[in-house]
Simulated assay, not measured.
Amino acid sequence: MSDVEFPAQQQEPPGLTGAMRPEPDHGEQSYVGHGRLVDKVALVTGGDSGIGRAVAIAFAREGADVAFTYLPEEQEDADATATLVRDAGQKALPLPLDLCERSACDEAVSRTAAELGGIDILVNNAGFQMARDHSIEEYDDERIDRTFKTNLYALIWLCRAAVPHLRKGPGCIINNTSIQAYEPSPSLLDYAATKAAINNFTVNLAAQLGSDGIRVNAVAPGPIWTPLQPATQEPEKIERFGADTPLGRAGRPAEVAPAFVFLASPADASYVSGTVLGVTGGKPVF
């Protein structure tokens, strides 16, 4: 992918995989599991596309059953993810829910536990950004609410609902933060603020839940080619997407998923908690 140039393109949020040029690589052909998550149950928010789909594929090929949330308008992508999980020989539980509502977060947790027999891994991946309006004067209340509720409120609501189930494992929580928490872009003022808050929340929750044996970590991706990009960026920015990284390119969702697998693995990451793992193409995460 290092030689790929992204043509100018634009979608309306939330964006769909099939309309992207080129389509992202989620590891469909490349990811090989090694039994790291056998008999585990994972709940992945925003699992229909992008990093969430790559994580769902990897978890399933490592032996986990996977529930995942998505917006109803993302049904096409959700169907594809569910098929890939089932093709790996695991159970898939697609959950069409808008996580901006607290009741939807509670439902995601309760249905996963009831229909798949528990929850061992919670991946808070769903996110929203909008980089087409650059001035804070253009931020209306609806945008601010959607950004904070999707990225931060839902994460807290989901953790609160999942912890009683995770104690039984004990399980783990993995939050999706961003390079924006460290190198914020002025055009992503609200989004970057939520990601910085997620970093703080991750470390703080790890301290609170350590005595229960629940590990809490985060992954901080850099620029990754997902539907969120053409759905929320200006077309001319897409043509330069990822070029400012030390590696000189955007990343693939398939390149991020192994970080989630490592943090989810009770064998490989048994003493890893309260950390943020960067997958940024060389941008600093500190």
Rank of each mutant, 00 (worst) to 15 (best):
D106R: 15
H134T: 13
S2P: 09
Q180H: 10
R249D: 02
A92E: 02
D39Y: 00
L228Q: 06
V32T: 11
E183F: 09
L189E: 05
A113E: 10
R132D: 03
V4E: 12
I214A: 05
G169S: 15
Q75L: 13
K168P: 06
F6H: 13
F262S: 06
D145P: 01
A254P: 04
R61M: 11
V109S: 13
G274L: 05
V55Q: 13
N175Y: 11
G18Q: 14
D48E: 13
A114W: 05
K237G: 08
V38D: 09
S211D: 12
V203T: 11
P22H: 04
T112R: 05
G52M: 09
T194F: 06
L16P: 07
I198H: 08
E137L: 12
N217P: 02
W157K: 00
A78K: 06
P22A: 05
E234R: 14
L43Q: 02
V123M: 04
C105A: 07
T147F: 06
P164R: 00
A88F: 03
P96F: 03
Y153W: 12
Y139F: 14
A114C: 06
V276R: 03
V38H: 05
I51H: 12
I238F: 00
A267M: 08
G222R: 01
G118K: 00
P7C: 03
A113C: 10
P223I: 04
E23C: 04
F201P: 12
A220D: 02
V163K: 07
P253I: 04
V38Q: 14
S187Q: 11
A264K: 02
K168V: 07
R86H: 08
T226W: 02
Y70H: 15
P246W: 09
P235R: 03
H165Y: 08
G242C: 03
H134D: 13
I179S: 15
P24T: 03
V41N: 00
G46R: 05
G50L: 08
D145Y: 15
Q90Y: 07
F59G: 12
P246G: 07
F201M: 11
S178K: 10
G213Q: 03
T147A: 15
R86P: 01
I136A: 14
V32C: 09
L247V: 11
N204M: 09
L263Q: 08
S185N: 15
L99M: 07
E255S: 13
P24A: 02
S49K: 08
R160E: 08
I179Y: 13
Q75G: 07
P7D: 04
P164D: 04
L155W: 01
G46Y: 01
G169V: 07
D106G: 14
G251R: 04
A78I: 03
P14I: 01
V216C: 01
S103T: 11
P96C: 09
C105M: 01
R111W: 06
I119L: 13
R240F: 06
R160A: 08
Q10Y: 05
T177W: 09
K168W: 05
R36C: 04
V66A: 14
R160I: 02
P230E: 03
A104R: 02
W157I: 01
A197D: 06
L158Q: 07
S103V: 07
N151L: 05
T275C: 09
L263T: 06
E142R: 15
T17M: 01
G118E: 10
